[in-house]
């Protein structure tokens, strides 16, 4: 069960639309290492997690990723608002609007991880209104990485010393 908070986790207020920038950022929405994939991965990994601390981290980070999904959506919305079909035609962003039923962005995005992808966006972006929330999202990826480091340590500490592997080898005997 989730409840929607009618606020962004961090403000997004972009003055100048820029569809070229939007075409770079859209991978962080539905791409293989985007916010949606991250959220679904963590929320689905929870169920069989035997350690409460790690279940909590997966639940709360997975939920925060949904807030980041909305922030990326807000960035894309504000970067592409008020564009006419003529303005969209012939731009890199055109296929996303024209052909969105094929799900272009989930299959065309790169295999880079979320933080690295944000690094690349920061290199390509010169609008401070966009850089500010993107930098925030990048920082959150770093915090999540710290907590998952804790989660790995917790899981490792719980492992039976006699079972060197992360799964119990006796299961398949």
């Amino acid at each position: 069960m989730w409840t929607y908070d009618r606020k962004l986790q961090y403000p997004v207020k972009i003055k100048t639309p820029n569809h070229n920038l939007a075409s770079i950022i859209i991978s962080q929405l539905g791409g293989p290492d985007g916010e949606l994939a991250a959220s679904m991965r963590y929320l689905n990994q929870r169920y069989s997690m035997p350690y409460g601390e790690v279940t909590g981290i997966l639940t709360d980070v997975g939920t925060e990723e949904l807030a980041h999904l909305e922030m990326v959506g807000a960035i894309l919305y504000q970067l592409t608002r008020d564009l006419s079909p003529d303005e969209i035609a012939g731009t890199p962003f055109a296929t996303y609007f024209v052909d969105h039923t094929v799900g272009v962005y989930p299959v065309s995005a790169s295999g880079q991880k979320a933080r690295v992808t944000y690094d690349n966006i920061i290199r390509l972006c010169d609008d401070p209104d966009v850089l500010d929330p993107i930098r925030y999202l990048r920082e959150r990826e770093i915090v999540h990485y710290q907590r998952f480091g804790d989660a790995l340590r917790i899981a490792t500490d719980h492992m039976n010393e006699k079972n060197f592997y992360a799964i119990n080898p006796s299961y398949d005997q």
Binding site: Q9, Y10, E53, G56, I57, D60, R147, I154
Partner: peptide
Amino acid sequence: DFAIQDTVLYLDA
């Protein structure tokens, strides 16, 4: 809420 979120993640661990 940002302060709470970060504290929650810390308390989870």
